[in-house]
Design a protein around this nucleic acid. Sequence first.
DNA 1: CAGGCATCGAACAGATCTGTATGATGTTTG
DNA 2: CAAACATCATACAGATCTGTTCGATGCCTG
Lengths: 206, 206
Amino acid sequence: MLDSTLENDRQRRLSPWSTIGRPAGSAREKILLTATELFCRNGFEAIGVDTITQKSGASKSTLYKHFASKEKLIEAVLEAEGAAWRRWFYGELSKIHGGPRARLLGVFDVLQAWFSDPNYYGCPYLNAISEAACDDERSRALADVHKSYLLTWLQSQALELGRDPSDLTRSMIVLIDGSIMAAHASRDATFAAVAQTLAAGHLAED
Amino acid sequence: MLDSTLENDRQRRLSPWSTIGRPAGSAREKILLTATELFCRNGFEAIGVDTITQKSGASKSTLYKHFASKEKLIEAVLEAEGAAWRRWFYGELSKIHGGPRARLLGVFDVLQAWFSDPNYYGCPYLNAISEAACDDERSRALADVHKSYLLTWLQSQALELGRDPSDLTRSMIVLIDGSIMAAHASRDATFAAVAQTLAAGHLAED
DNA sequence: CAGGCATCGAACAGATCTGTATGATGTTTG
DNA sequence: CAAACATCATACAGATCTGTTCGATGCCTG
């Protein structure tokens, strides 16, 4: 059957941590998912709304009916993609057997799976901050919401470990952001394992 | 004298790790320095050549006489800004007293000084990679040249310490990139100290 | 002084950008 | 059936984008 190849193509690109490639029902969803793929893969400034309407098959009037501006569309993309990523990420973390130490180290196994995606494009929030003007507060505010979930999770692990939450979360942020960027810049997923080793050494200290 | 306030304004913005604000002789230099400030502070895609000519006082024909295209101008900006940063960075490192361990940990003191600049805008190479399309090789190639100096320096420290160069450089890359991004995203220079503590723990292991 | 060189200013080309307006086409729902 | 709704196609406005062209101006050097 001819459909199978198309289906395989879609399956191949489908990643559980991204909304890219997911089936879209409404036109709004089609626009949002197409915008996500184009923005995240090519940069937010590099893609125009005309490209999004063409690739999504939607009309420009529909796009502006659902999203007040390109800026609002970017925000919706970041929020939707962030929500999908978090759902996957914390789902994977919940599968980890063992105590808080195993969970904290397991973070980097989950990250390495993310980095190993051939379509890995870095963290969209970090990319947005890097692309934005250095005094832009909007991208940081969006990233802060996304990051707050991680901070909360890290803090609860720290408390369970009897460790200073501030020290542990700040260390983990450096290791997570560092592996995200190093893996993206070098196309080398194993930077997650490097960060994991550093985290293990840090957790072993007393 | 009226000049003093202008001079102070310029002095205040002058940072040793950046070419921004440095006196420009030729028109080429004026264009290059203006482009550096605008690109690095606002993003490479966000700034057009017209803005650069206006702010620099140069004409468009002069810009295109010295730089074949906007892309080439971006490359020249990255190379010039990277060279200025490296000159400052390795100059600071050479001031550090002590052995390779003190030098490796001193990296993060130097980084913290960089992050503490009120005009800190992250690493222009990492920003360029984040902004570019995820399959863009040009920005990675430019960053690789910049990074190769750091890798060489790190390797020589590792050899002097009798440590595996690959393990140590990869760990340091994670900590350096991580503190660069965390400091940029959170506007918090003390992430350098966090990375330093992690590095100290890693170096203490045997 | 004269020729070369760097630069400026301004206009231009052609494409692309965000966002709006209008009318036609279907599709769902009361 | 009819009203409401979602969507599409297209054209448009006005700005901005990269890059080119042309002529005028001044400066330095042989």
